[in-house]
C-alpha cells in the first residue's frame, strides 16, 4: 500500500502551509520528508493521518481516496516526536490500545502485543508505566504501539528529535532493522536532520517554504542536486557564483573545468562543490585564497578560505601541519566532483 498526494494544498487562516504537493510513496518504500521547520513537511504528514484537511487536492492510500475519511478509519500507524504514550496505561496496555479499539479477539491481542514488544526490544518492560521509562524506551513503545495494528503505512514525525545524540544513532539503526523486517510497510519519515534522511530513506523529498523542492534517491540528491537549497540542505555545499564559458566556468578570474551541459555560454550560474571533495595544494581547478578560520574536528580539519570575497569550505583529513590563520593556500577539486546549477533552479 502506498501513499499518493495529488496537488494537496493546506492553508490556515489564509496562510498556505503546504502548496500543491504532488508526491507518491511506493508500497514498502521509506520516503523522508526533509526540510527546515515551517517547510510544510509535518503538515503533509498530518494530511495523510487525517488531522489536517486539505483546502484542495486529494490524499490516496493504496489508490483509495481517503481525503474525507476521519483519522480513525485510515488504518495508519503514527509515531510522533513527544511519544504521546497514554500516561494512565501500562506499556502493554498502550500497545494493545489500537487492537482493543478495533475489538480484536483477546487471544490475538495478547499475541500481537507480545510480538510488537519483542520486535522493539521492550518485552521486559510490559508492566511498566510510561513515566517509568527513559525517552528512548518510550519511543520504542510508541513504535511498538503503532506496529501492533499492523499498519501498511507508518508515519514518523521527527521520531528521534527528543532523544540525545547517542540514543539517536542507536534508534536509527533499529528503525533501519525494522524496515528490513517489515518490507511491506511504507514509511513517511518527517525530519529536519539530513543524516537521518540519508541513512534511512529510499527516497528523499526536500521541502522548503511550503513547497516540494526536489525528490530523489539520497545518492541522486547528494551527487547531483537540482538546486541550491537542496545542495546546501542535503550534505552542505560550497555555492559560488560563476559565469559559464565554453568547456568550463570562470570564477574570480580563474577558469575552472566542469561539465556545462544544458547551460548556455555566457549565462550566470552557481557552482556547487561539496567541502569534502576539496583538497589542499596544487592540482586541476585551483583556487587561491586566505585562511580565515580553521577548526579541528577530530578526524578532519575544516578550513574556511576566502577566495575573492567568497568563503570556500574544505573538509580535509586531519592535517599533520595545518596552515595558520591568515596563510595564503591553494585549494583544488576534480572536475567531475562539481555540479553546475543553472541560476534560480528550483525556485521558479
Amino acid at each position: 500500500m502506498g501513499i499518493r498526494f495529488d496537488s494537496v494544498t493546506v492553508a490556515y487562516d489564509g496562510n498556505v502551509v503546504l502548496d500543491s504537493l504532488d508526491l507518491t510513496v511506493e508500497p514498502g518504500e521509506v520516503m523522508a520528508l526533509l526540510g527546515p521547520s515551517g517547510s510544510g513537511k509535518t503538515t503533509a504528514l498530518r494530511a495523510v493521518a487525517g488531522f489536517v484537511r486539505p483546502a484542495s487536492g486529494r490524499v490516496f492510500l493504496a489508490e483509495k481516496d481517503v481525503t474525507d475519511l476521519p483519522p480513525h478509519r485510515r488504518g495508519i500507524g503514527m509515531v510522533v516526536q513527544q511519544y504521546a504514550l497514554f500516561p494512565h496505561l501500562r506499556v502493554d496496555e498502550n500497545v494493545a490500545f489500537g487492537l482493543k479499539a478495533r475489538k480484536a479477539p483477546k487471544g490475538e491481542i495478547r499475541g500481537r502485543v507480545a510480538e510488537a514488544l519483542e520486535m522493539t526490544g521492550m518485552a521486559a518492560y510490559a508492566r511498566r508505566f510510561p513515566r517509568e521509562l527513559s525517552g528512548g524506551q518510550q519511543q520504542r513503545v510508541a513504535i511498538a504501539r503503532a506496529l501492533a495494528i499492523r499498519p501498511e503505512v507508518l508515519l514518523l514525525d521527527e521520531p528521534l528529535s527528543a532523544l540525545d545524540a547517542r540514543l539517536r544513532s542507536g534508534m536509527l539503526t533499529e528503525l533501519a532493522r525494522l524496515h528490513r523486517e517489515l518490507p511491506g510497510v511504507s514509511m513517511l519519515y518527517v525530519t529536519h536532520d539530513q543524516v537521518e534522511a540519508l541513512t534511512l530513506a529510499d527516497r528523499i523529498a526536500v521541502m522548503d517554504k511550503a513547497r516540494l523542492q526536489a525528490c530523489g534517491t539520497p545518492r541522486e540528491l547528494y551527487r547531483s542536486p537540482a538546486d541550491e537549497f537542496t545542495a546546501s540542505f542535503v550534505g552542505g555545499a560550497n555555492l559560488v557564483p560563476v559565469t559559464v564559458g565554453a568547456g568550463g566556468v570562470s570564477f574570480a578570474g580563474t577558469e575552472l573545468k566542469v561539465a556545462t551541459e544544458g547551460v548556455a555560454v555566457g549565462a550566470r550560474a552557481t557552482l556547487c562543490v561539496r567541502p569534502h571533495v576539496v583538497g589542499l595544494g596544487q592540482g586541476p581547478n585551483q583556487l587561491v585564497g586566505v585562511v580565515r578560520e580553521i577548526q579541528w574536528r577530530g578526524a578532519t580539519h575544516r578550513l574556511y578560505v576566502e577566495v575573492d570575497g567568497h568563503t570556500v569550505m574544505a573538509d580535509l583529513r586531519e592535517l599533520k601541519d595545518p596552515p595558520a590563520h591568515g596563510d595564503l593556500v591553494s585549494l583544488h577539486f576534480a572536475p567531475d566532483d562539481a555540479v553546475l546549477l543553472a541560476a534560480g533552479a528550483g525556485h521558479g
Partner: peptide
C-alpha cells in the same frame, strides 16, 4: 492559487 480557507479539525 487562492486556496479556500478551511480550518484544521
Amino acid at each position: 492559487r487562492k486556496p479556500r480557507v478551511v480550518r484544521g479539525w
